[in-house]
Nucleic acid binder design. Structure first.
Length: 495
RNA sequence: GAAGGCGUAGCUCAGCUGGUAGAGCAGCGGACUUUUAAUCCGCUGGUCGUGGGUUCGAUCCCCACCGCCUUCACCA
């Protein structure tokens, strides 16, 4: 990548010096080390050459600081659990190890054996007695005290970001905890985790542009999945009563602080449930995730009483003061600066937007910003049915769908339905969606097999989708999805 | 896809209506056995994102391109 500079030349020289001493610059197996966090938890007394010695420890890690002196060096050793100071005194080391010490650069990986204790100033420290060289770092490391400022640099050198931006590693570890908590929570309640295909012949289950690919042997075009929904519902037909999948989905759309082209989704289906049983589950699940990180429940996401359940209609009416009739909505939409017409760029056709679409746009433009101001998580329900093709309609009002979304700090965190299991209605909504769809979107073809599966009979069910990346963002208090995805998509560097 | 901002040493950043670049840290040499942003003395380090243009002269002004960031659009 970068051309050799003087800085790397010096490191190469030192690598050669190490090899000339008969040490391996690339190291060997190193058994019996203790994680630095565990070492720091040991009882530590002040070093005393005359008195009894402290516990002998072995640690391995990366040198992230060093303060050299004539016959006394201080270093800092870093591993994934933390940092600890090393003290190297010339009279405690063999002459060979002292020579090796003088070949160390920032970023080298070493193993140490020594006594654990504290220095004069009380700093927990390993007094090094034996030094094992494990890996030479040939690239100059950033000086960590100022941190890494440039986001592009951090993303293109994520490995350095993990070492020198403590939050990056911490969040990666918290992400693991959260996902494991979700699995445990669901497993304990009898949900089966399954894996369904990533390559789909028809990209269904959501309305997003898919990535396209091609299978050579079958000579067919395939799509990376945009949702997990349709295969999982087939499993409900097949008799699995509680299923979930945590998997990567791919959407060929814009990149933003809340969107990455590939992201991790939880989808879950529960036979004989509905959106309210799912609401309970969602709360329990998220609370379990909050608790898994320790640090208490900073978010008021504890019980149903604390979580307002807001109807989209009520919400719209309160915030916008419009009646539920079509004229009122149109007037409010116009006042909000929304376009009332829909133009198809390909055909040039101009059509009036449907009432339901306008309600939804009003919601997004006028109500969502209000939700963002709320400290409380909010379940929003009573979505216009036209916006929810996979959702069962309310029996008492078929214009509304049995769907809720959970908003936290204005971010859509979860999306749930009472699932539509009526194949006749399902086919009709699919057909309605496909009418007038542009050529570009025609890959969202009717999934005939899914309809067929419904005709065989899918039990009434509740379903849930949670964007895991956004959940991690929420629980780790970050505002960019790039902070919770270790390798977000970037344009490749030029050669 | 649109608008705005940014790109200077290994890292973090200065650089004044245009006179071919500075600091701290890192690095190199030296001193130092209790430092922890160690300190002290000396030194090195740059195709100022890339390519054009204007100008006697461009890091600075103009154009194009590349990359990142922010907002918007897309994302039922």
């Amino acid at each position: 990548m970068s051309e050799p500079t003087d800085l790397t030349e010096f490191r190469r020289e030192k690598m050669q010096n190490i090899a000339d001493m008969g040490r391996d610059p690339w190291g060997q197996r190193f058994d019996g080390r203790t994680p630095i966090a565990d070492i720091r938890a040991l009882p530590a007394a002040k070093f005393d050459d005359a008195g009894p010695s402290g516990p002998k420890v072995r640690a391995a890690g990366r040198v992230v600081r060093h303060r050299t002196g004539g016959k006394l060096h201080f270093l800092e050793l870093w591993d994934q659990t933390g940092r600890v100071q090393l003290m190297a005194r010339i009279n405690k080391l063999s002459p060979e190890d002292w020579k090796l010490l003088e070949c160390l650069d920032l970023g080298d990986i070493i193993g140490v054996d020594g006594e654990f204790g504290t220095t004069k100033t009380g700093e927990p420290t390993i007094q090094v007695e034996q030094l094992t060289f494990l890996t030479k770092s040939l690239e100059p490391h950033p000086k960590d005290v100022y941190g890494l400022g440039d986001m592009e640099y951090r993303l293109r050198h994520r490995y350095l970001d993990m070492i020198y931006t403590p939050d990056t590693l911490r969040r990666a570890q918290q992400r693991v905890k959260i996902i494991r908590t979700v699995r445990n929570y669901l497993d304990e309640r009898g949900y089966l985790e399954v894996e369904t295909p990533t390559l789909h012949a028809i990209a269904g289950g959501a309305a997003a542009r898919p990535f396209e690919t091609h299978h050579n042997a079958l000579d067919i075009d395939l799509f990376l999945r945009i949702a997990l929904e349709l295969p999982l519902k087939r499993l409900l037909v097949g008799g699995l009563e509680k299923v979930y999948e945590i998997g990567r989905v791919f959407r060929n759309e814009g990149i933003s602080p809340r969107h990455n082209p590939e992201f991790t989704m939880l989808e879950l289906y529960e036979a004989y449930g509905d959106l309210f049983s799912i609401m309970d589950l969602t709360e329990g699940l998220i609370v379990a995730c909050v608790d898994s990180l320790g640090g208490g429940r900073a978010l008021p996401c504890v019980s149903r009483q604390c979580v307002p359940v807001v109807s989209m209609r009520t919400c719209s009416a309160n915030t916008l003061a419009v009646p539920g009739d079509a004229e009122g909505v149109q007037a409010a939409a116009a006042a909000a600066g929304l376009r009332l017409e829909l133009r198809d760029d390909k055909t040039g056709t101009v059509t009036t937007k449907e009432h339901d679409v306008l309600v939804h746009e009003l919601f997004e433009h006028r109500v969502e910003p209000q939700l963002a101001k709320s400290d409380q998580p909010i379940f929003v329900y009573d979505y216009p049915a036209a916006l929810c093709p996979l959702t069962k309609r309310k029996r008492e009002n078929p214009a509304l769908a049995e769907r809720f979304e959970l908003y936290v700090h204005g971010m859509e965190l979860a999306n749930a339905y009472t699932e539509l299991n009526d194949p006749i209605t399902q086919e009709a909504t699919f057909r309605r969606q496909l009418v007038g769809m542009s050529e570009e979107d025609s890959m969202a073809k009717m999934d005939e097999d899914f309809i067929r599966a419904l005709r065989y009979g899918m039990p009434p069910a509740g379903g849930l989708g949670i964007g895991m990346d956004r959940l991690v963002m929420l629980l780790t208090n970050t505002t960019s999805i790039r902070d919770v995805i270790l390798f977000p998509l970037l344009r490749p560097e030029k050669a």
